[in-house]
Design a binder for these strands. Sequence first.
DNA 1: GTACGAGCTAGAGCCGACTCTAGGTCAAGT
DNA 2: ACTTGACCTAGAGTCGGCTCTAGCTCGTAC
Lengths: 124, 124
Amino acid sequence: MSSMTIGEVAERTGLSVHALRFYEREGIMANPVARDTGGRRVYSEDDVEWLIVCTVLRASGMPMTAIRQYTDLVRHGEGNEKERLALLREHEERVTDQMDQLTRCLDLIRYKIAVYEDALGADS
Amino acid sequence: MSSMTIGEVAERTGLSVHALRFYEREGIMANPVARDTGGRRVYSEDDVEWLIVCTVLRASGMPMTAIRQYTDLVRHGEGNEKERLALLREHEERVTDQMDQLTRCLDLIRYKIAVYEDALGADS
DNA sequence: GTACGAGCTAGAGCCGACTCTAGGTCAAGT
DNA sequence: ACTTGACCTAGAGTCGGCTCTAGCTCGTAC
């Protein structure tokens, strides 16, 4: 299945068809999406793989603007690998910071849970 | 310092004065905030501690609506500890899910970083 | 006495990331 | 022939969580 409709891609990526069109408008497709004679989008396997990478970046909190920058670099072709690396490293830091913060929050949440469990006795 | 102005509380909690008033409007103060003769808010130590708990919950992604529910339970007094516990456990799950997801995303990000580092050679 | 800074309210505005609507095209099935 | 359903565009609407504005009142310092 190397060419798919927007509906199929929506199903495969978990994004809505609305979101797919929106992402394209926002310039976060590494390559322009092909069209059939009727003007309908025809996605390639590569397009879908790229979208999956984007969903992972989004799921880890990378802002659209950063994804667009990264996309721009990729679309521009070879020669800017250092810049791509810099963006990825920046995001890695965002993610690890976020995880550290969540760990600290979890301590409090678990502490409070333990307090209520105690107060309620062995059951609950 | 057991009574503070909104400005002092903003400084201590890291929330803006706007956010503090907003939170109050949204009903996420466990106890009503006192006022001085001129109608200005006077925060107690307890108020600040509550706000700090709220910031931790927010920082870990608990939605305002859930915080409000929790606040409502606390404000309503003893007897609903099971419900409070349920809300906290629900949030604990949100947080651990989120951390799992971040861990998976981080794998991809680090993989991509490694690929670029390789491609760029030992330097970078 | 007046200028300043901090506080007040109600309500508007903003930002990110979608999501939905209106109004239309097109291909396939009955 | 015609209905259905998936697709199209441009643009409006939504939602969460603040953030800011306008227009006001205080209390203190000069």
